[in-house]
Design a protein around this nucleic acid. Structure first.
Length: 215
DNA sequence: AATTGTTTCAACCGCTCATCA
DNA sequence: TTGATGAGCGGTTGAAACAAT
């Protein structure tokens, strides 16, 4: 069915709110409550649609809004709830007093999401991405073997790099393939990740890791 | 100092759901 | 039961701020 955008009607104003508009909306709601959002803008003397007024009020003007950076405790909650609720931002926001769904959604998309991706963690399952793990496994094992063979072998006249086969899983220690230096600093600011995925290199074999971490 | 690239976040859009006549 | 309407949600956009070169 669909719905025409409210701003198409009566050439209502769009874009950033001015301090005057904020004041008019706040004053009206404090005096009358918000009741019907559709009729509110007209009653409050605003050239905005009800939807825009509701969004401005709930995401910015509401007196109980908590502004500023998310604490590490809040990050913990967001990450853990996201693993349960997925992108149900309003449901997640219900557990974080003073935070809006929009704010949490933005925070997830701009910060946490990137960190988890860099860690090689699947954003849907909150588990390590095994496709990346396998790829890294093959590449690193191959490189390791090439190095060992090369070091143990007398120099050939042609200086060719010897070829080698990929070892079995049991022979190779596991580290998280996507850990880099930037990640180390990111994760230090992400105390919340209790996730299922961080592995301390390089003390475990892959089968141990899979049985311990992935299940 | 100027330019370019990246990040952040407020705001919009389109859709679904709930309610009511 | 059905269609109209309002509220709310999640995805996306774009401008401003900031960082890097």
């Amino acid at each position: 069915m669909g719905r025409t955008p409210c701003s198409d009607k009566n050439s209502l104003k769009k874009g950033p709110w001015t301090p005057e508009e904020d004041q008019m909306l706040t004053h009206y709601i404090k005096k009358h409550g918000y009741g019907n959002w559709r009729t509110l803008p007209k009653n409050a003397g605003l050239q905005r649609c009800g939807k825009s007024c509701r969004l401005r009020w709930t995401n910015y003007l509401r007196p109980d809004i908590k502004r500023g950076r998310f604490s590490s405790e809040e990050e913990d909650i967001i990450i853990q709830l996201h693993s349960i609720l997925d992108n149900k931002w309003s449901a997640i926001a219900a557990h974080l007093p003073g935070r809006t769904d929009n704010e949490i959604k933005n925070y997830w998309n701009t910060r946490i999401r990137k960190i988890l991706l860099r860690m090689g963690i699947d954003l849907v399952t909150h588990r390590p991405r095994l496709d990346l793990l396998d790829l890294w496994w093959i590449l690193s094992s191959s490189l390791y073997n090439q190095t060992q063979v090369f070091l143990n072998q007398p120099l050939t006249q042609s200086n060719e790099i010897p070829t080698c086969s990929v070892p079995s899983c049991n022979e190779t220690q596991l580290v998280n393939p996507n850990v880099d230096h930037k990640f180390q600093s990111d994760i230090s600011g992400l105390s919340g990740y209790q996730g299922n995925a961080i592995v301390t290199p390089p003390t475990r074999t892959r089968p141990e890791y899979e049985s311990e971490v992935l299940h």
